[in-house]
Simulated assay, not measured.
Amino acid sequence: MGSGLCKKKPPPEPKEDPAPKHSLVLNLTRRGLKDVPAEAWSQSDLQKLNLSLNCLRSVSPQICVLKNLQVLNLWGNQVLSVSQNQLRSLPWTLSNLLNLRKLNLSNNQFSQLPTCVYSLRSLVFLDLGWNLLENLAENIQNLTELRILILEGNHLNSLPKALCNLSSLELLNVDFNDIKDVPQEFHQLTGLRRLACHPLDSGLHILHNPLMKPTKEVLEGGLNALYSYLRTPA
């Protein structure tokens, strides 16, 4: 399974998900915003909030008033020529958004995942791609409903064993990190059906890492070969 099959490409701008029927949607993408406007906090029934491609440095704790929010998109909050204007933190009150199902934090400047995210137990989609993450806390196992977890393009050199408890995962993308091995318990992720290459494919995206364990020869056999390798006692 050569590296020529899967060449690194710039991350595409995420496509807008269709709004749920009868939902309230506020689209504030590409407005050059440095702060979230007050109008957002006045819409308590809001279900979808798109703040992508702005210049946000932070998000107000007032976000906790959006109790019905299901989708929050904070993708790519940056001024391209001034990197320090990228989003680096989230308010702890975000943990009050118990109905939140989709959270996009990709293309920002997070060096660690804000603690509040680990409390969002209804999440089924979490995109943390293209940040500065160096590790994940064991608390990642709290997000038991996750079906899609995107961690590509960070600085991860290992994955926590707790990640292996997320049995609902159907897509796990850890490409373009610095991962050298995977936990022995990784074979417990039975919702992953294959080693994937195309960014939109379900399955495990891991080939673009300097893996030493398992070896390239093991990975050439696909996901079943990887899982068999991990089940074999050392």
Results as ranks from 00 to 15, higher is better:
Ser111Trp: 15
Asp17Arg: 14
Glu152Val: 05
Val36Ser: 03
Leu226Gly: 03
Pro37Thr: 14
Leu169Val: 00
Gly2Glu: 07
Leu223Pro: 05
Asn85Leu: 15
Leu56Asp: 03
Ala162Ile: 10
Asn177Arg: 12
Cys116Glu: 10
Leu192Cys: 12
Phe186Arg: 08
Thr215Leu: 14
Leu80Cys: 10
Asn107Arg: 12
Lys8Ser: 13
Glu220Pro: 02
Tyr227Ser: 15
Val79Ala: 10
Arg231Leu: 11
Leu46Gln: 05
His22Glu: 10
Lys9Asp: 04
Leu90Val: 00
Val71Arg: 04
Ser23Val: 14
Gly153His: 08
Asp181His: 09
Pro37Met: 14
Gln184Ala: 13
Pro183Trp: 04
Ser106His: 02
Asn135Cys: 13
Ile179Trp: 14
Ser52His: 06
Gly76Thr: 02
Leu113Phe: 09
Leu204Ile: 01
Lys180Ile: 15
Cys164Asn: 12
Gln78Val: 06
Val124Leu: 02
Arg101Gln: 13
Leu166Cys: 04
Asn27Trp: 04
Pro91Leu: 11
Arg194Cys: 10
Val218Tyr: 02
Gly191Leu: 02
Asp178Lys: 12
Asn224Phe: 11
Ser202Asn: 02
Arg31Val: 03
Trp41Pro: 03
Arg147Cys: 01
Lys48His: 08
Leu230Asn: 10
Leu33Thr: 03
Asp181Tyr: 09
Gln112Arg: 06
Ser60Asn: 03
Asn85Tyr: 14
Thr93Gly: 00
Cys164Lys: 04
Cys64Leu: 11
Ser83Leu: 13
Pro11Gln: 10
Tyr229Pro: 09
Asn131Phe: 07
Ser228Asp: 04
Ala40Phe: 10
Leu5Glu: 05
Tyr227Phe: 11
Ala234Thr: 11
Asn154Asp: 01
Gln184His: 05
Gln62Ala: 11
Val71Asn: 12
Gln112Pro: 05
Ala225Ser: 15
Leu105Glu: 00
Ser119Asp: 08
Asp17Ser: 04
Asn157Ala: 06
Leu103Gly: 00
Cys164His: 07
Tyr118Lys: 14
Gln141Lys: 13
Arg101Ala: 11
Ala225Arg: 15
Asn131Lys: 08
Ser111Pro: 14
Val117Leu: 05
Gly32Gln: 03
Tyr227Val: 13
Ile179Glu: 06
Glu16Phe: 14
Lys15Gly: 10
Leu159Val: 09
Glu39Ile: 03
His187Pro: 02
Val218Met: 07
Lys9Phe: 15
Leu33Tyr: 06
Asn73Tyr: 02
Ser52Cys: 07
Gln70Ala: 12
Lys213Asp: 12
Leu143Met: 07
Ser167Asp: 01
Gly2Asn: 04
Leu136Glu: 02
Thr144Lys: 10
Leu149Val: 02
His208Ile: 12
Gly221Glu: 13
Val174Arg: 09
Cys55Val: 09
Cys6Ser: 03
Glu220Ala: 12
Leu207Pro: 01
Glu134Cys: 06
Gly32Met: 09
Glu220Lys: 15
Pro20Gly: 14
Glu152Asp: 09
Ser3Lys: 11
Leu133Ile: 08
Leu94His: 00
